[in-house]
Design a binder for these strands. Structure first.
Lengths: 233, 233
DNA sequence: CCTTGTGAAGCTGTTCACAGCC
DNA sequence: GGCTGTGAACAGCTTCACAAGG
């Protein structure tokens, strides 16, 4: 899960703004529409799309309504058209060059990940400080020295970076990223990075996700012990 | 980010329940407290803890107030005591055995991750269907055949599993997990899994995270073009 | 008929501001 | 004086239920 967004409360960028919760679901809809399109489906209802994305149909319709009125009453949505509209809204008409810092297992997993390309994301570089890793190849990209960061950010107009380093190195890397001009950081290191207000940070923490699941599992067990019974309604 | 929680709306487990948003932040506080403790800090205020976790102090106090009144007015919180209370609330007084399915880069990254142990999480097994991977060693754990799933879940009382397979394999794996009795799934595959109501799913999607950042970057650029200016206060 | 789009209601989460206590 | 704990106000999100329109 993603836990953090830095950025002042309601400042700036909020005219014509789409609710955050909706923005977080749009990529989900987009992917589902892609799958439908591949399967030759040309039209779908909010109910169908809601089904495959695990979302309530009313919520889905409200989400889409923020983009405009792209459906047809009595019929549903044109798969290709809706796809295009969501992609446009998400900024996928352009390609975003992203730098990945850290070429360990996680960095490699990210570099190898197929499917960024079709989502407007391109890996500009994978960087590491370890001489053993520099020059090696992960996912078809050659690992470069972290020293080249500023240069790469400038030349390739990078504004988004991924931190996939150990926790100890993360803050230093973040400082360097900010200094180089990066304004969005996806952080996989188990630390909250201290970054300026104008830099957005999203924290994805594997351990936290498991701890949340464990909490629910624990409550389940307790409830049973307390005589709480499954309600089938 | 985590996007999905299946489970019926307000059913079951809600007496004495802590708000979801709070549950998602408790692990963050817990880690910060750990770091403070290591640094020899014995007491801290909501302001200090809020600072390092990137959370508003009032929110932090409200979060902690759901657990009980563990602070001292005029002083702050006892680091060790609060640590214990949060850990207990999260169910870390017991150890949760977790199965990881998929021994690719991502599965390896997870297996290698240090720091589960101190958070009440233990890797019971890493499974894969690829004969080339079975028997190999990732993060000190030997990769076993996916066929052994049911057996391992039963013997080691596993209720939480991680799906770290390609998207195509994920639904099949999920079905097998559910059949084996797993009730919480952390899903890294870029698909929404169809699981029964009583199974909780959390989706962590690398691509979606980047798309969300790209959306904000795009809006930033547009706003500048529209003459929108940084508001400083 | 069917399905969208959306006001209105209700719920959850956040923030404020201050009383209560050390 | 300082910091916690919390009611109350507010903001944001979800869900309902139905009018509007193909």
């Amino acid at each position: 899960m993603t836990l953090l967004r830095s950025a002042r409360p309601g400042v700036g960028s909020n005219d014509r703004g789409i609710p955050e919760a909706t923005v977080a679901r749009l990529p989900l809809y987009l992917r589902a529409l892609g799958t439908l399109a591949e399967g030759g489906v040309t039209t779908c209802s909010s109910g169908e799309l809601a089904e495959v994305t695990g979302v309530n149909p009313a919520k889905l319709r409200k989400d889409l309504s923020y983009l405009g009125s792209y459906g047809t009453r009595g019929v549903g949505y044109d798969v290709e058209y809706l796809r295009y509209q969501i992609a446009r809204e998400l900024g996928q008409t352009q390609t975003w060059d992203v730098v990945i810092v850290g070429a360990g297992n996680l960095g490699s997993a990210l570099s190898t990940y197929q499917g960024f390309g079709s989502r407007g994301i391109s890996i500009a570089a994978v960087l590491d400080t370890d001489p053993q890793r520099i020059g090696s190849n992960v996912g078809g990209v050659e690992v470069e020295s972290f020293d080249r960061l500023a240069e790469i950010v400038r030349e390739r107009h990078v504004s988004i970076a991924v931190v996939a380093t150990p926790a100890e190195a993360a803050q230093g890397v973040a400082d360097a990223l900010v200094a180089a001009g990066v304004t969005s950081i996806l952080n996989f290191a188990p630390t909250v990075l201290q970054v300026p207000d104008h830099v957005e940070q999203r924290l994805v923490d594997l351990s936290i996700e498991l701890q949340i699941l464990a909490y629910h599992e624990q409550r389940r067990t307790h409830d049973e012990a307390d005589g709480g019974q499954e309600v089938m309604a």
